[in-house]
Nucleic acid binder design. Structure first.
Lengths: 232, 232
DNA sequence: TCGTAAAGTGCAGTAACTGCAAAACATGGC
DNA sequence: GCCATGTTTTGCAGTTACTGCACTTTACGA
């Protein structure tokens, strides 16, 4: 029962193949559109059999939007829970860092975002994935607002601590879901403008502002959100 | 070119068949689970050929979640735009009336909701459908908040009315997306409790509150939302 | 009652996906 | 270097959702 064998060949080869397939998938979809790309095409380009493809990815979608499921980073989670500044901003940031995952392949990531822009269905799939971790995020929000409410879990005067707690849970879930919507909004603004993708240089539009950075978009969305909430 | 012919036989027969298929689809899915129900099974139960099935419904999903796409009612839209009371509440109500559509078959509707509860994928599909009308709703919200802001479309002092208008559009879109999240939350609470579905009478749980009505759930969500927004 | 257009159907084909069992391969012990 | 062993890859056959096309049946208006 050899524990940590050579930490490489087996696993790294697997990862290399997965990455190659994902790249080919995204490239092909970018060129021909999702519906016009068959699994066989991706397989041929990646030099694997169809059966192997489905060993790597559960669905055709998965190859295009990426195999790795969004998840919450431990450290960030702790930081989030114990912070006391802007809840909305920090929650939104947290969820964005989940979406843009560990993948350090910059090209692949931006290409993917473009694909999302061109193919709403895939964007939905991605959002659907996000909702799979909703429960986790909700838990984090709950822990934070409970702490902020200054309540040790079940210590309360009267007869109904359970009710109050449930209310906090509901609030957490509600907030998480709402922020998910905001995230969707942010995502749409985040997609590279068709112009900027085509022409890095000035093509005719006056401003040199190539494509809004994540931070810019997020900041804009937040200020907008705050203003919106203040109005009614 | 006869305009309004007999308003019945042709069309009503079509609707009757569609309804029959939907009922069978929901019934079968409820009994066996979505993945264990084939289109052929639905066809056999409904006494139509598979080819006809796909003439009625684009996908297997469509038969289960219903053929009719959510849409905004003209009258309600106008009412919404010109109202000045609680924006959040009215927007949420508007979207809920979209989801629960014209179908007057009570049984079918509740069964469907149960199906949604048992099969998250279908719930997602339904939400995805909702997002298809996001643009429309956004437009309504925009019209309302623009009116509330007291701005006739493009009449403004300085050089940047376009910017202000775009900001209002962004606000509308953001709000719509966020409310969609709230709607999702409401939906989860809306699903009949497994208990109440099984046993109408008292089975052991103390309260006689069988299942929260739509109004109750909505009211709860709204009060929760308001409290949540006041806190941070 | 008949002609026409619409609705329903059979059939053949494509594409995503699954299970199974054989083949190819990598790895560690000798 | 070579063999035993477990893992990965693959081929193959089958299922299911879905589509286009051509043909039959049906409903409707004249």
């Amino acid at each position: 029962m050899p524990e940590t064998t050579t930490p490489t060949t087996r696993e790294s080869k697997h990862q290399a193949t997965a990455l190659r397939v994902e790249r080919n998938a995204v490239r092909l979809v970018l060129r021909h559109g999702f519906d016009n790309v068959t699994v066989d095409m991706i397989c041929e380009a990646s030099e694997i059999s169809q059966r192997t493809f489905f060993n790597y990815f559960k669905t055709k979608d998965a190859a295009v939007i990426g195999a790795d499921v969004p998840h919450v980073d431990e450290a960030k989670a702790r930081e989030f829970i114990s912070s006391d500044s802007d809840l909305l901003a920090e929650l939104l940031t947290l969820m964005m860092t989940m979406a843009a995952n560990l993948n350090f392949d910059e090209k692949l990531m931006t290409d993917r975002i473009i694909v999302f822009g061109q193919n709403p269905d895939l964007m939905h799939k991605q959002m659907e994935r996000m909702t799979r971790v909703t429960a986790e995020v909700t838990e984090l929000v709950y822990l934070r607002i409970r702490r902020a409410a200054g309540q040790p879990p079940v210590e309360q005067a009267g007869v109904e601590p359970a009710v109050l707690e449930q209310d906090l849970r509901d609030q957490a879930e509600l907030l998480t879901n709402a922020i998910m919507g905001v995230l969707r909004f942010v995502a749409t603004r985040w997609i590279p403008t068709p112009d900027s993708a085509a022409m890095p240089g000035a093509s005719g539009s006056s401003e040199g502002q190539v494509a809004p950075s994540r931070e810019q978009v997020l900041e804009h969305a937040l200020s907008l959100l705050r203003r919106t909430l203040r109005t009614p």
